[in-house]
Each structure stands twice: as C-alpha cells, then as structure tokens.
Design a protein around this nucleic acid. Structure first.
Lengths: 231, 231
DNA sequence: CGGGGCTTTGATTGTAGTCAAGAAATGTGG
DNA sequence: CCACATTTCTTGACTACAATCAAAGCCCCG
C-alpha cells in the first residue's frame, strides 16, 4: 500500500543504524536477544531455524525491501537466524521506535500488520508445499516464486533467475536433501523447463507454473477499509 | 500482554455479530470475500487450504481466545478455509473497525501485530517439523503442542488430551496419510508414551516432549518497549 | 596449480504412500 | 432403543519417492 510522504519520512527516521554484512555472515543468530527489526536495502538474506538434531530449515529468501526479524518480536530470544546470502545492507530499527510508529502513524502500524499477515500467507503456502507437494513440484514452485518476487522488485528480467545459493541451501528450504535437489534440477532440465549456466537459471515460466499446486495470491493495493491517504 | 479496561471495552465493542457454527460446517471458505476477522469464543476451529490436485493442508487447530481469519487480511479473496471441529461460537469484527482500532488504540494495534508475529513463529515451527522431523516426531509434537495450549487456556488437565478429530484430519495437519498416522499412534502406544480411550488421549508429556526437535518458545509478557498500561 | 567446497552420479536402504479389505465406532431413522 | 448405513479405524501386502552412503569430477579461489 502507498505511504504518505510523512509516513515515508517516519520510516527513514526510525532506522538508527545501517549495517553491512558479508556473504555467509550471520546478521542475527537464533537465541540472541531481540533488539531490532531490520529493513533489507541491498542483497539477499535467508531466515532459518536449526533443530535439536542439527537439521536446518530455511523459511524464506528475503530480497531488498523486505522487513527482517519481525517474527521474533514477541519472543524473549530470537527464533530465526538471519544469514546473508550475498553481501548486503540492512537498516536497524530499535524496538523502542516501534511503539512511536504505532502511536504517531496508525496507518504505518496497520501496514506493518498487513505485511506480517502477508508473510503468514507465504508461510502457509510453503507449509502446504512441503506437506503436500512432490519434490519436483516444490522445486518448480521455489523457482517461480523467487523469480516473480525479483521481477516485481525490478531486480531481474522475465525468465531469468540468478540464485547465489548452494543446492544444500535450496534443499534446506524445501525440506529435501541436496542430492535429491540435484536430481530434481536435472529432471526439470530434462523436461526443458529449465536451463542452467552455473547458478544462473533460465526458466520456462508457464511450464514450471503448471507444476505448482498452490493458488496464485492476489493482494489488495489500497484496502477500502483503510482511512484515506490524507490521514 | 495485558489490556487496559478501555482497550478490553474497545475489543468487545468492535464485534458486530455473534455466530454459532455446527460441527463440520464451514465458517468461511477459501476464495470467499474477506469481510471480517473473527474471535473464537467457544469450541475448536481448524484453518486449512486445498491444493489444485485436491490435497488438503491444515495449518492450525484454533481454540477459544484465538483470532481467526487475519492471514487473509491483505488478500482479495480468503486464503484459508475455516472449519468448525466442534460446535463453536465466534464474534465477527468487520474490517472497517480495524482502522478505528489502530487509530484510537495504538497499543491494541501493536498487540494485534505481536499476535500475528507469534502465529508466524507457530507456522515456522510447523514448517520445520514437516520439513525436517520424522512422522512419529511430528505426531508427538502435535499432541504436546495442542495439550499445552489447552492447558494454558484452562481447557484441560495436565496429561489429558481430548481430540475431536479424525486421523485423516491429523494427517492433513502433519503432512502424512491417515494410514500412517494410525501406525504412528500405535507406535507411540507401544512405547507407552500414549494411551487412548476413543478420541481421548492420556499423554506421557516428558516422553513425548523428548521427541520434539524444536525449541520451546518463550514470549515476553509485557514488552519493555511498549508504553505503560497507563497510556 | 593446488585444495576445499560444491555438484554429480550410482547403488542401496528405508520411511511413508498406496491399495484393499475387514472390524469397530458413530450416526440416523424408525 | 434398536437396526442399518456410513464413517472411521485397523491391519496387511506391496510400491515408490526420497534419504543415505560413497566416490568421482568440477570449479572457483587463493
């Protein structure tokens, strides 16, 4: 949803610090104290969790514009680890500023609430995919989803998808093993739904989309029930 | 977090309608227009999604006190189906009231935001369980989680868990088949971690908890960064 | 040009899915 | 309250998708 210039200014002002992170470094480790939420401005970051037996589950590949770290807001210690997939830049917003935002910019508060709920839908879709779709299907879905988000953010061209991730990371995102991800990639290539040049992928969008069993999501631009932008 | 009496009053006042639902009836079907969020006051409700191939994935078993339908707030049409597991009662809050809440009761807005984020953590835990835990582990985790939530809500006694669900529903929640859920239930019984009387379960809490690979979550009661209850 | 991480491939295993049928429980109408 | 119909549960036999184990090749990167 569109923000007023006053609201945009409030967002800018709320960040106290800009952090640069090297590829593969950890921005915040699970278990750490929850002190900020982050706004990703450059590069990619993955959020993940490690189980007691050492297994790892990634939740999302975040791209510029995404808010990071919000899920842990109500927790005593952070639930997710934030790892830089590429070199990246984030703005840190201390929790104390959050209360100000809700008090002084109700529409901004609502927009945070709405975006948290969009992320819930993304997690629900992921859960449905991991719980109920085949390995190829999940992989196809991952490629399409990331591609579409990058395209929407103007970070790539249609059909073109660079993935600076190892196959093991993709496996930990989809609930598979690295070996099986490798086989499914070859499977998609065999069906001509995919061509690879190193870690750059060329996608047959329509073909891959046909493998996705989950409905496309459409979001309201400017919810009717919101007070007008004048507010 | 604790609400002021003024805030509690605002919550009460925002519900326009009270709905009663029969067991197995659908409160809201996915694809329907998004017009309300709901407050569950009595009975159990499950949220789920149906894939294009007809497969079903449940996301959560909701108990009294839970907010329903919020994930779809930013969507044009509802993402999740809400199905009554038992006869139940919900209060409907029309979307127009939401803006008022954020404008007039910033702390209430924040509390909605925090609760959405807690639900994100619950979904992340579910995703990690389905993606990275064995079938027995997932089943044990489900039993413990539901038990603990009911206990916390004063709806059951320690070790005692009534589940008015078919094994097929449990399967659709855990990403398994009904047949395999049945086998895993017998497996747990064989290990004396569980006894059953129809759909009432008696749990060996410690034993089941040991099978859960996901960390216990601890939530802040009254976040320090929130303005005081005076506000 | 050497080495470590990443990818690829093959062989084998195992967990969970599928199919099917009978038993038990639940629900319904008389 | 009983008889019948329909779900739901249970069990067995078989299948298959994905995991595991292992080794070789590739490709950056220093």
């Amino acid at each position: 949803m569109a923000l007023t210039s006053r609201e945009q200014e409030a967002v800018r002002a709320s960040a106290t610090e800009t952090l640069r992170c090297k590829r593969r470094s950890t921005l915040r480790h699970e278990g750490a104290a929850v002190q900020h939420i982050y706004l990703l401005t450059e590069g990619w970051v993955a959020s993940s969790m490690t189980l007691k037996d050492g297994a790892r589950q990634f939740f999302k590949v975040h791209i510029p514009g995404d808010v990071l770290g919000a899920p842990s807001l109500a927790n005593i210690s952070a639930v997710e680890t934030l790892t830089a997939i590429t070199d990246c830049t984030v703005k840190c917003v201390p929790l104390s500023r959050l209360a100000d935002i809700f008090a002084e910019h109700p529409r901004l508060g609502m927009s945070l609430f709405l975006s948290a709920n969009k992320e819930r839908v993304a997690l629900m879709d992921m859960l449905a995919a991991v719980g109920r779709m085949s390995a190829v299907g999940r992989l196809a879905r991952f490629l399409i989803d990331l591609h579409d988000r990058l395209l929407h953010a103007g970070q790539t061209e249609a059909g073109w998808l660079p993935i600076p991730m190892t196959q093991e990371m993709i496996a930990d995102l989809l609930g598979l093993t690295a070996v099986h991800v490798n086989r499914m990639l070859h499977e998609l290539e065999g069906r001509s739904l995919l061509r690879r040049h190193g870690r750059d992928f060329i996608l047959d969008l329509a073909g891959l989309r046909a493998l996705d069993m989950i409905a496309l999501r459409t979001y309201v631009q400017e919810p009717l029930w919101l007070p007008s932008t004048q507010g």
